[in-house]
Simulated scan of single mutants.
Amino acid sequence: TKSLKDIAKSKVNPNFKDQNIKQQAGFSAENKYTARQNAENIINGKTNRTIRTDDLGRVNDPLFDHVEIDSSGNIIADSGLQMKFVGSDAKSALSKLESKEYQKYIDANAKLSVPSDFYNGIKEEAQKKIKILQNN
């Protein structure tokens, strides 16, 4: 249950500096997403809450970063979400998300969350690929 303040205080191993910084950015993004989703639910009068799987004791869950829980604390089926910050642009992100490495998320019916600045580009690239496949 690391807060943003705790994450900022995390030590960076000089031998793994880039990896450590990316991990800290990922943890920060998870916290921000959780807070934003829960704030929206509260504003909209919804009782469901988003929770990080790490905070449920499922540290480094292989499929999900977040799940939704109901007002009794029960996990809502098919609410699992995995955040992915991959690729240097939308096209390369889609290419990575289509790889066999990410098939496990699709098989588990996990929602994938991508950076908002990649989202429209990923959709456009996917539409292009769909059209090409439909024309073959």
Rank of each mutant, 00 (worst) to 15 (best):
R58L: 02
K46C: 04
K111Q: 10
A93R: 06
S72P: 01
Q127T: 12
I75K: 06
V114K: 03
F118T: 04
Q23Y: 12
K17G: 02
D18S: 12
G26D: 01
R58M: 02
A77R: 12
T47W: 10
F64I: 00
K111E: 08
R58Q: 06
L112C: 05
K129V: 07
D6T: 01
N136K: 15
L133E: 13
F85G: 04
Q19H: 10
L112R: 09
K128T: 11
A93G: 05
D107C: 06
V59I: 12
V114T: 05
L133F: 15
N60Q: 10
A110M: 09
A108V: 03
F64E: 00
N135D: 11
L56C: 01
Q134N: 13
S71F: 13
E68T: 13
V12Y: 04
D70V: 04
V12C: 03
K123I: 15
N120I: 09
I132E: 13
I51G: 01
Q24I: 04
G26H: 02
K5I: 12
P14G: 06
V86K: 08
Y105H: 11
I76F: 05
L97V: 07
V12N: 03
K9M: 09
L56E: 00
S72G: 05
G121W: 10
L63M: 09
N120A: 09
K2W: 06
L112W: 07
K100A: 14
K129E: 11
E101F: 14
K5L: 11
Q24N: 08
N41R: 10
K128W: 08
P62C: 04
A93S: 14
K100E: 12
Q23F: 10
D70S: 05
K2G: 02
V114F: 07
K111N: 08
S3K: 06
L56H: 00
K91D: 06
R52I: 00
G57I: 01
A35H: 13
N120S: 09
E124K: 10
E124Q: 09
R49Q: 14
I69K: 06
L112Y: 08
F16W: 13
Y102N: 08
I69Y: 05
S95N: 12
L94H: 08
S88H: 12
F85R: 08
Q82Y: 03
D65V: 01
Y33M: 05
A90G: 07
K111D: 07
K17F: 12
N135S: 15
Q19V: 13
V86G: 03
N20T: 07
Y105E: 02
P62N: 06
K131C: 08
K11A: 06
N74S: 11
H66C: 03
A29D: 09
S116P: 00
K84H: 06
K96G: 04
A29R: 14
E30H: 01
V59A: 02
S92Q: 11
I7P: 01
D18N: 12
N48D: 14
F27M: 04
G73V: 05
N15M: 10
L97H: 09
F64C: 02
A77F: 15
V67F: 08
E68C: 11
H66P: 00
L112H: 04
L4M: 07
D89F: 10
K5N: 10
E40W: 14
Q19T: 13
Q24Y: 14
N44A: 08
G87W: 14
K129H: 09
T34P: 01
G57V: 00
K5S: 10
A35W: 13
S116I: 13
A8N: 09
K100T: 15
D18E: 12
